[in-house]
Amino acid sequence: MDSARSASGQPSQGLPRRWFNAWIVRRGPTRPPLTLRYRQIFILPTRFGWLLGALMFAMLMGSLNFNNNLGLLTTFIVAGLGSNSMLIAYRNLEGLRILRTGAAPVFAGQSALLLVSLAGNAGRPRPGLEVALDDNEQIVSIPANGVSEVQLPLPTHHRGWLQPGRCRVQTCQPVGLFRAWSWFWPERPILVWPRPATNPPPLPEGGGRREGQLDQPQADGDEFYSLRKWREGDPLHRVAWKASQRHDTLLARELRRPRSRHLALDLAQTPGQDLEQRIGVLTAWVLTAHQQQRAWTLRLGPETLGPGRDDAHLQRCLRALAEFQ
């Protein structure tokens, strides 16, 4: 994952920030799956908390000065509310489990949706959790003993593996006086496929069938392909009697249908000014081929993928295109 880019805006983070992150990491596990414990939970008053604190101080001074006991009682009720808020904010995070993070691959330029799934423990509901990555924030509530998920949009710019930066989960429950928060890092990078070229050149027909490449057998084929040992269930009319006689064993004819030729997509033969452009064109071609349900091979330098035409092949090709250096 060394090649993974950071998604926190600036590619090079300042030294203090790195030290700070290292300090967080030393305090406890920071990659899902993890359970938040007191060492990982930070808590500070919100702006509103400071405001109410100042108000409380004014009330305290006034009431103390005039020995106004009901005024003091009011002040202390506010103080009690405050101290309990702190506790409640803390307990809303305490024991929270961040089960998993992950995101489906996207094309560069699209927003990846980082899925974060959270679960409580201790059988208490956890309302009003804010999960944030950079400036994107989602709010989620976890029912008692339940699991909730949030999706954080994450803009992507370049193909390859994108390592999302530090995520924050925080809560200001119950009345917004204190903010308890914790940090974690998504467990694995997000695959960003290359951005497909707009208006790519047409698919390179006549690429070809390479020597030694076997065609797929087709059940409804009618072109003789080879002989093989007779297997139970083979219809009798397939038995190659003469050949069987020669080999002293029962042989059956295997029939295959000649298949339409597959596309050969090769990076070396793709038009484009630079690598990124050619990869963009290749991506567009792969997508088109898949859409047209045609088989293709993809050749990137020494590596050849395929032939194939199914989803798995498409995913393999897109990943190879994303990772190609």
Partner: peptide
Amino acid sequence: LLLMAMPVALTLFVLFPRLAQPL
């Protein structure tokens, strides 16, 4: 919330040092 604030409030009420002289 208010009820839970009461133990703290009452403790403070009884034990918060009072001023012998107004400031």
